[in-house]
């Protein structure tokens, strides 16, 4: 019989984590806070993901969205059977966690430079730990800018927190939506459009971009047009990730395995691959 230690070494066996808090972000998106049923909390670097398991239903890759040292936080959009089951997990429920996996955001490389965070839709959660890191060590970075876009005002996640960030003097926040519904008085337009007027020094900035692949392509173009070097632009890629270990072959993107070499890539590494259709 496998002992507990062997169980963990298996890398395929999820660790039980209990949901301690659950909060609705939008119509189909929920944020869960999790704590391990036994043992140490999960350490991670911003940008990493876990494989999150709903008992008997299945497992999906979800970015870690919380602060280091705090509970494990995941913001999940219900788009399939597994993510629906995860979103439906109330406080007290137990989910399985494997990981963390992957290469994170360049928060160390960005020290001393301006940081431009560009998020589209559900792309903000994977970037939030990087923002937390910039704010935690605020004096070690130059200007920090968050540019965030979503489909409608109702699709914005972390709305209260974004409003709180906006009122800070040491963080520039700009938000836009594709469709201005309701009493929205903010910007209407795509998020890459915000890059042109954001305050940062393109020659001394690192950009971190996460969102739909097409949005990231346009954002990278806008960043390049501003003069950000292509090796200072980082994107988060998505493919079918099943094992997280580099063994199952599903998350291949040309010469790379996203779970192992990504999900965060430098634009100059990934750009030739993004241009190839159906790669």
């Amino acid at each position: 019989m496998a002992t507990a230690a062997e169980t963990l070494s298996g890398a395929m066996a999820p660790r039980p984590f209990r949901v301690v808090r659950r909060q609705r972000e939008t119509g189909d998106t929920w944020t869960l806070e999790l704590e391990p049923v036994n043992g140490e909390p999960l350490d991670f670097v911003p940008g990493q993901f876990t494989m999150l398991y709903a008992f008997g239903v299945g497992e999906v890759p979800i970015s870690i969205c919380g602060e280091r040292g705090g509970p494990l936080v995941h913001t999940v959009r219900a788009v399939g059977a597994v993510s629906e089951a995860i979103c439906a997990s109330r406080p007290g429920a137990v989910l399985g966690v494997r990981g963390p996996f992957g290469r994170g955001w360049p928060v160390e490389e960005a020290l001393g430079l301006d940081v431009v965070v560009v998020a589209g839709g559900i792309g903000l959660p994977p970037l939030r730990p990087a923002l937390y890191e910039c704010l935690r060590r605020r004096s070690e970075y130059g200007d920090v800018v968050l540019l965030y876009g979503s489909r409608t005002p109702a699709d914005l996640v972390y709305r209260r927190e974004v409003e709180a960030w906006r009122s800070r003097f040491d963080l520039e926040v700009d938000v836009t939506v594709d469709r201005g519904e309701g009493d929205w008085r903010g910007k209407v337009g795509v998020v890459p459009k915000l890059i042109g007027s954001a305050r940062f020094d393109p020659g001394a900035a690192v950009a971190m971009v996460c969102g739909p692949e097409i949005m990231m392509r346009f954002a990278a173009e806008a960043l390049l047009a501003r003069g950000v070097p292509e090796d200072r632009i980082y994107l988060s890629m998505e493919r079918n990730m099943q094992c997280g270990l580099g063994h199952c072959g599903h998350c291949q993107l040309g010469p790379t395995l996203i779970c192992r070499d990504g999900p965060i890539y430098r634009f100059d590494e990934i750009e030739p691959l993004m241009k190839v259709r159906e790669l």
Binding site: M1, A2, E6, T7, G10, M12, A13, P14, P16, R18, V37, F55, G92, A93, V94, G96
Partner: peptide, 10 residues
């Protein structure tokens, strides 16, 4: 309490 236990067969 809603938890589960994982057994890995050798």
């Amino acid at each position: 309490e809603g938890g589960f236990e994982v057994r890995e067969p050798p």
